[in-house]
């Protein structure tokens, strides 16, 4: 295989892995730390995508500066969603923390359907793409990398994913919030009895998680289109990621996202007809031989 081909496949795999990382990292954190299996998590990925496409398509009269557009995607949208999800945590999700996982699954599945319909109600069911004038993916064009031409924008998305993964790791090992969160994942009641305001930590972790999903959606949309199918697609894929990586593990999400990204990319290159089947076959194999996933039962950053 020529080196250019290999690089192309690897780049697509990395890019897809970056998107999967955003869609599933919060799912695993919320489960690992807060013990909530939030099926609706990746729906916020779709919500971020719609919020981004709407913002980009309405900002054309104000500015078309690439830096501003990227800042909107990377900062403004996650912050808006962060605030919004704090409110959601206190209202919709608060009662769900203390119930059985099965009911959590059912209840949060209901939340997906609600979010889906809200998206359709606001933005309609037709796919929406970003206007060419305010599309950072088109503005940035492509760059030469090791002799092949790759999309500058998608490289930027991969970079942001790496920064987020490193940032989260540092947050867990260096900051007080991170240390409390790790302790909560091991023994929730103990932390509560130490006099820590666990509710405040809970809201913070939940909102960070949801904001990361929205960030993924926002970064996804300039290169693709916002369509209602995005929500459910990524709900399924994010579950594949955490099953393979192990529920509640940051490292697991990174490894599983990379694995699925690469497998899918190779699958499309060589066996395009069965691309999805390969991904889910991989998940089945992991479930059979390692039901807890690669890094299950080990804490968030172990």
């Amino acid at each position: 295989m020529p080196i250019g081909t290999f690089l192309g496949i690897a780049f697509d795999g990395l890019y897809f892995a970056a998107l999967l990382f955003f869609a599933s990292i919060g799912l695993t954190l919320v489960f690992g730390i807060l013990n909530l299996l939030n099926m609706a998590h990746a729906a916020f990925y779709g919500f971020g995508a719609y919020l981004a496409v709407w913002t980009l398509n309405n900002i054309g009269d104000v500015t078309t500066s690439t830096v501003v557009l990227l800042a909107i995607l990377v900062l403004a949208i996650p912050i808006v969603v962060f605030v919004l999800s704090a409110a959601l945590d206190k209202s919709v999700f608060a009662p769900l923390y203390d119930i059985e996982p099965v009911y959590q699954l059912l209840a949060t599945f209901g939340v997906i359907l609600m979010l889906d319909d809200i998206i359709k109600f606001i933005w309609g069911a037709s796919p929406i793409s970003v206007d060419a004038a305010t599309d950072p993916s088109r503005q940035l064009g492509s760059i030469e990398l090791l002799g092949s031409s790759v999309s500058a924008y998608r490289s930027f998305v991969i970079l942001i994913a790496v920064l987020c993964a490193v940032g989260l790791y540092l947050m867990f090992v260096k900051t007080k919030l991170g240390k409390i969160s790790q302790a909560m994942s091991e023994d929730y009641e103990m932390v509560q009895m130490l006099g820590i305001n666990v509710n405040r930590v809970r809201v913070l972790i939940f909102s960070i998680s949801v904001a990361l999903a929205a960030l993924g959606g926002a970064l996804f949309v300039p290169f693709a289109v916002a369509a209602p199918s995005v929500t459910l697609d990524y709900v399924l894929l994010s579950f594949a990621v955490i099953v393979i990586g192990g529920l509640g593990s940051l490292k697991g999400v990174v490894v599983a996202a990379l694995l699925i990204g690469m497998v899918r990319s190779l699958g499309i290159a060589f066996f395009p007809a069965i691309e999805l089947a390969i991904v889910f076959a991989l998940m089945a194999v992991v479930i059979i031989f390692r039901p807890e996933g690669f890094f299950g039962h080990r804490g968030v950053v172990e």
């Binding site: 192309g8 693709a224 499309i268 290159a269």
Partner: peptide
């Protein structure tokens, strides 16, 4: 040399695009 198919409503063609370009 190759026939590819994607679902109606697909949002990410990048890997197919690379394969075709390649």
């Amino acid at each position: 040399i190759d026939s590819r198919y994607t679902d109606l409503g697909e949002t990410d063609y990048s890997a197919h695009v690379s394969a075709i370009a390649d």
